[in-house]
Amino acid sequence: MSHIRDAANVSIGPKPKARLKHHSSDDTLKELVEKRHDLRQLLNNNQSLDRTTLRSSINHLTNSIQKRLVEVRSAQADQTYSDITNTNDSRKMFEAVRHLQKSKPPNNSIGVHDENGCLIASDDMKASVVRDYLEKQLTRNEQPLEPFEGLPRALNVPFTGVELHAATSSLKNGRANGPDGIPNELIKYSNSTVHEHYAGIINSCFETHTFPISIGEATITPLQKPKKPIGPLKNLRPLTLSNAARKILSMATLKRIEEKVNAFTGPWQCAYKRARSCADIVWCQRVLLSVVQRKKWEYHRMDIDMSSAFDTIKRTTILELLKLCGCT
């Protein structure tokens, strides 16, 4: 991984300085801002010029800039509306809606109660309490699963570099790194030699019953659930930041079992299927709610509380289901 990082620093270089959130690439706006900048320089550096006329020109340009900003933002809003109405991709729909919403900056602090119901002030004590709670909550008193079964042996169908390249292509850019600090992009945009080498590492794991430490490492970041009281541990959402090596292996495995899982779950399953997601259901519900609120109709629906769905997974049950699907 260090060689990949060194190669990226040489060929790509560091990330450029982030632009201001109000930055615009509009040519007309750029021209107005440059003119105002030049006039301000004249105003500050030359006392002999007519300062009243300069100030008047600067004020006129400032008003023109504000008007142009309104036009640019209006055009962006129209484009976002067009993206929402003219696409069938639910992910793009929600991204466009989030772009329109002006949300407050997130509050990264969390509150944790001790056994007496009092808030804990020390970060170290918070981490200790949260770790013990998550370990009990996520394992559900199950015995740890062994990484391998039987004697060391090669896979019937070994992983290939092409297969690993397809898995890395599914990784998303701009995501947080795992404990190894290697961004997804460095492996995603590597050449075929890297993917072939990583495929060989995975294949040798089954032949020797060993595996890289990076596959089993992750950083757990607890987030406060929105609109939930601060303090109870059940109101925390554990966010796991895995290493890219773990993500690649997971995506490659998912692509291998995808067809069998799709056939097993049937046509009404929306989540975790190709070209389908829970966003389809959520978007449908939001459209219904918007119509009901506008028309002032009565509307009744029944839901299942899925807030703790991922906290109640039993890994042995998942493995049994995969065997029912026909996975080896």
Rank of each mutant, 00 (worst) to 15 (best):
S2E: 15
H3T: 13
I4K: 09
N9C: 11
V10L: 10
V10I: 11
P14C: 00
P16V: 06
A18V: 02
S24D: 07
S24K: 07
T28I: 12
L29T: 05
V33D: 06
E34D: 10
K35Q: 15
K35M: 11
L43N: 09
Q47F: 00
L49P: 00
D50E: 03
R51F: 06
L54E: 02
L54C: 08
R55H: 13
I58P: 02
Q66G: 05
K67H: 14
A77M: 07
Q79S: 12
Q79I: 09
S82M: 07
S82E: 09
D83R: 14
T87H: 01
M93W: 12
V97K: 01
H99Q: 09
K102W: 00
K102G: 01
K102E: 01
K104T: 15
N108R: 10
G111C: 11
V112P: 02
C118D: 13
A121Q: 13
M125L: 08
A127G: 01
V129L: 03
E135C: 13
K136V: 08
R140M: 15
R140Q: 15
N141S: 15
Q143I: 12
Q143W: 04
E146S: 15
E146D: 14
P147S: 06
P147M: 05
P152G: 05
A154W: 07
F159N: 03
F159P: 07
A166H: 14
T168C: 14
N173M: 05
R175W: 04
A176T: 09
N184R: 01
L186E: 10
I187T: 09
I187A: 06
K188S: 05
Y189A: 00
Y189N: 05
H195N: 10
E196P: 00
H197D: 07
Y198M: 13
A199S: 11
C205S: 14
F206N: 03
F206S: 10
F211W: 13
P212S: 08
P212L: 08
G216P: 11
G216W: 10
P229C: 05
P232F: 01
L236A: 02
P238K: 03
T240W: 02
T240A: 06
R246Q: 15
K247E: 04
A252Q: 03
K260R: 11
K260C: 01
N262M: 12
F264Y: 14
F264S: 09
C270H: 15
Y272W: 07
Y272E: 06
R274N: 08
S277M: 03
S277C: 02
Q285W: 05
R294Y: 09
R294F: 04
K295M: 00
K296V: 12
Y299Q: 05
R301I: 11
I304F: 12
S307Y: 04
S308T: 14
F310S: 07
L321A: 14
L322W: 06
